[in-house]
Design a protein around this nucleic acid. Structure first.
Lengths: 221, 221
DNA sequence: CAACTAATTTAGACATAGCTAAAATATGTA
DNA sequence: TACATATTTTAGCTATGTCTAAATTAGTTG
């Protein structure tokens, strides 16, 4: 199978992400939004990607990624996330500086380079954002999500979901700045009532009851 | 000044290397040989590079790199060589595997990345081939060249030149496999007559008189 | 079920970077 | 010095990846 160009790789990655949650028949408009290109350009690209058998494409009906395409997408994501680990762990980038550079590095063509980088980084399973790094075969490690109240003092992680998604609870989270994706660190834990003191995004201290904490799911670092 | 594309950067690098030894009015054919493209493609590119003021170009008369162009070329060379150091020192590539990958990595656009990589590698002054790495301002450290007989046991380096370039001497060097560019290591040194035992390219042992060694210039590693 | 609207595709342009073939220029030799 | 040869440039074509404008298709609604 002929290799993809960088542009083709970027479209394939977008399509993979858009169909991630099981969504089928991804639309041209969705892709054009994601890629910040015009729908007409997307149509063109879909034709090319379908020719290379990485997507199934029926005009006007949307796109589904093939098994072959999924494997390729996961290889690109693997490269992106390994480079992110390198940038943060070795070059001391902060985790919000790395995405743009990794977008470029992920297109370097050299299987041996990624093998050796993986080795050098000691086979990391998660990137600095807590997202899992696919292995050479495209398999992902699911990382267990813990309720915040089960973390110990000094544990760090990222808010990835809530159990109770009622409006009032979400309003409360929003008010205290504990959005999905926020980095948290457990600073203190009161034995008596299970309440917590946490640090949000390295700048904001927050006190939280056991019941609130039990409703927040954390991806541990 | 508008940034160069990867293709433009590669041409500029070629032109820099071709004009390195003080050669002026570099020819279209020379560039086309170096770049493995057709002379017609080179003419096209020269027009673009002249527009961007990185070369002086007079049709049919050849090309000279401008000060601005020299600075840019040295920045690209800096990136190439820093990546080579990374690949060899950190990722355990052998020094003959790195060029191709570094050709790709050198085009990544991110000044902060190169700063941090330089830091991470502890500001190396020479790449794995012994070539000097320009600093951020494009300045190069000239590495002193020693006659082979002045090296000590265990010293390693590369043959970069000979003092006596007579045919018979060169024939001798050729015969024993000690060509320009060969890696050498001093295995033993006889105090009495100053003769040496050296290892060539990690595979060939060689005995050499003091007088022969004094005529071979080494770039130390 | 016909027509309107929104989504999508096609057609035709442009820029980059390569190519071949033909034209123009420079150079060296008779 | 004039012509032959080698070098270089121009002209016109191809492919990728983008765009705008126009045409087509799907879905919804009176």
């Amino acid at each position: 199978m002929k290799a993809l160009t960088s542009a083709e790789e970027n479209y394939l990655k977008s399509i993979y992400h858009l169909s991630d949650g099981g969504k089928t028949n991804v639309s041209t408009n969705d892709i054009s939004n994601e890629m910040k290109t015009k729908p007409a350009s997307v149509s063109d690209m879909l034709r090319k990607l379908a020719e290379k058998a990485v997507i199934d494409y029926r005009k006007y009906y949307g796109v589904n990624i093939t098994e072959e395409g999924k494997k390729l997408a996961l290889q690109i994501i693997r490269k992106h996330r390994l480079w992110e680990v390198f940038l943060v762990e070795k070059l001391k980038f902060s985790w919000d500086e790395v995405h743009e550079v990794a977008e470029e590095l992920e297109h370097i063509k050299s299987p041996i380079l990624m093998q050796r980088l993986d080795e050098f980084l000691d086979h990391p399973k998660f990137d600095p954002h807590g997202d899992p790094i696919p292995d050479e075969y495209g398999d992902l490690k699911a990382r267990p999500r813990l309720p915040l109240n089960e973390l110990e003092v000094h544990d760090v992680g990222q808010i990835v979901a809530v159990k109770d998604s009622g409006a009032s609870f979400l309003r409360y989270l929003d008010k205290v700045g504990a959005y999905i994706g926020a980095r948290i660190k457990v600073l203190d834990k009161v034995e008596f009532d299970g309440s917590l003191e946490i640090l949000v995004d390295n700048k904001k201290n927050l006190f939280m009851s056991r019941d609130v904490a039990a409703n927040i799911l954390i991806l541990q670092q």
